[in-house]
Design a protein around this nucleic acid. Structure first.
Lengths: 199, 199
DNA sequence: GGGTATATTGACCAGTTGGTCAATAGGGGC
DNA sequence: GCCCCTATTGACCAACTGGTCAATATACCC
């Protein structure tokens, strides 16, 4: 009994949503073609018809995830702050908030990151995304450096951007494993304290 | 044809080494009882005889990993530095160096961390380890705060320790996915620049 | 309304998995 | 030299895996 026919794009999206649900619930390791099919309420053969293989499905899921994650955009609200330091602070706050509000997306991203250790294609994709992220931070860091050149000595904008990104990832690690003891305010207060001394 | 008999402790260690080899090579997700048995050159039934189930084996592997990882010890070399800031710097350098020199251990630790998201028992164990790590950093941070109270304002030692730990984890994330572009020196220079301004 | 292209399906397959179990080999105590 | 305890094994099982394929229901074109 074949189900109702649907345009290819719609069906692919439907299956990818199913894959996302399975991946966030059970982990990518336990993502099976049949589980995805069940979540999307289609036969498992159909999943393999639209995505050639389980592997291809997983790769497409990564693309889907990156396309559906709101990441590091300097909003108008943030751009409005006159002082660079305030903008940096707001940006960090925004990203930490994202870690808390899109936890499934963040979790899944790091699960792909772990997969990337052994899969070159995934590694390259994740790597590119991290680079994009670093570059976005670099901009504001360069601004900060130009505004107060005397405070920074030999520290480059690249170096500071890398530190900022690393710190966000570290927060993610903490937040993911122990959300209860992850105190955004305290983290930010500490960073504000440290960076604030520079001015 | 049963192989040579060996004391229980020796055999368990042998199997755990095999499990470590498989986990670092293929990932925990692809760690199968048979693969471990093959690596340890024993039958797969023997693995299940010494460890009740695959799950128990994985949990024991985590214990083994934590017991066999050299982690955050303030060595005599570090303790000798007269200035607290230098000690912090050396400690950070040591930990970053560890990320590079024990990459398999570090990788595997984060793979367990990812597993911890869905396994309470693993999560608790990882959580405790992270807490131990944070506490060790807290000591040196408190020292730093006492030495220069005027520089820190409302920033607590706990807050700074959390930032330091987060930063190390962030570095690990970067180093793991893209070792080529992970420049220990640049990272340290940036942090030294930032923290150094406090004095 | 009939024909065609294709999206969809259930049945099937070979391989792998974790786990059980009866059989047995082998070493330590006597 | 014998016996017993247990570490070790191969055979087996049911469940699940990714993937293939022929059959078919369905939407669209005319």
């Amino acid at each position: 009994m074949a189900g109702t026919r649907v345009s290819e794009d719609v069906r692919r999206e439907q299956i990818l949503r199913g894959a996302f649900a399975v991946a966030t619930r059970d982990g990518i390791g336990r993502l099976t073609v049949r589980a995805v099919a069940g979540e999307a309420a289609v036969s498992h053969a159909l999943v393999l018809y639209h995505f050639k293989s389980r592997n291809a499905l997983v790769h497409q899921l990564l693309e889907w995830l990156l396309a559906n994650t709101s990441v590091l955009r300097v909003s108008e609200d943030i751009a409005r702050f006159p002082r660079v330091l305030d903008r940096l602070h707001a940006l960090l706050q925004q990203e930490m908030s994202r870690l808390s509000h899109e936890p499934q997306h963040t979790r899944l991203f790091y699960e792909f990151w772990a997969l990337g250790v052994r899969d070159e294609s995934i590694r390259d994709r994740i790597s590119a995304e991290l680079e994009r992220y670093r570059a976005a931070f670099r901009e504001i860091m360069e601004e900060l450096r130009v505004a107060e050149p005397s405070s920074f000595g030999k520290v480059t904008a690249d170096g500071m951007a890398a530190v900022a990104v690393s710190w966000i990832h570290g927060c993610a690690v903490q937040a993911m494993i122990d959300p209860a003891h992850f105190d955004t305010e305290e983290y930010l207060a500490a960073v504000r304290g440290i960076v604030g001394q520079l001015g």
